[in-house]
Design a binder for these strands. Sequence first.
DNA 1: AAAGATTGAAGATTCAATCTTG
DNA 2: CAAGATTGAATCTTCAATCTTT
Lengths: 153, 153
Amino acid sequence: VYGLHVTRWLDEDEMRAWRGLVEAFTAVQARLLVDLQQHGLDDGDYGVLVNLSEAPGAAMRMCDLAAALHLSPSGLTRRIDSMVRRGLVSRAASTEDRRVTLAVLTPDGRSAIERAAPDHVDGVRRYFLDHLDRDAIRHLGDAMAAVPRGRES
Amino acid sequence: VYGLHVTRWLDEDEMRAWRGLVEAFTAVQARLLVDLQQHGLDDGDYGVLVNLSEAPGAAMRMCDLAAALHLSPSGLTRRIDSMVRRGLVSRAASTEDRRVTLAVLTPDGRSAIERAAPDHVDGVRRYFLDHLDRDAIRHLGDAMAAVPRGRES
DNA sequence: AAAGATTGAAGATTCAATCTTG
DNA sequence: CAAGATTGAATCTTCAATCTTT
């Protein structure tokens, strides 16, 4: 019969790796989120603050920021709306291209990321890295580098 | 100075492993979601269907299902509402404890999971496992098994 | 009083439509 | 017409409050 596709299910090693990855990653993310919330941030806020704090002039075009965060244009608009209300970010018009809006880190936003980042890194260690030895960390980095990111197969 | 905590930032290997994990996992999840949407499901629906299809009688208590999916009670209620509207699941009263509601897989729900699962497993292979060799898969399983899941440190 | 489940309201996300500028 | 950004409407998610049963 043409077009019949017999499914090759996951074997034991494969299932252990995939399910383990899903569960471990989900757990770590949840714990990191709890830590961020102690600082009044969520994971989306943190992504915005990290990107802005590393950008020249602590400013980025909305469209570039949306791409960096894998967010839709409107999704970023709403998130920046919220962060502007909370004083973490401000908007500025670009002098080069009058279509673009820049998202700019405010002093309060800078303080927030500088307070939250050490806790966050601590969390990445305590919830994740501390449980792996150096070899495992290197192997993991190698494995993840082999996984395609974008549209290519 | 007491209480002063000097942050130990991530070194190169650590950063590569952690950022790689975040980016690879996010990308794989996004591609799997696109596949599920071809079948009219999202990732949350899929989790419900997998759990119910593996449960005795294709039925589970709402509270147990919520725990299995790391969902809040109300979050599960809304999701089941949506799946009932679409005919994938039905509700039934428990005969043992009249506080509990059972979520039950319908024939349509059974069909949906049986159509979607092979594509999903294919996706896990094409987007993820196919890019790792057997050793990498085993090492990954070992590493993920070492990461704590719950509230313990 | 606690467990199981649901609901209302508030906040977030996405799609399509709109507006402005290049 | 395409790119950048925003808005409205619909959908989804979560919190607190509520209701029933144990």
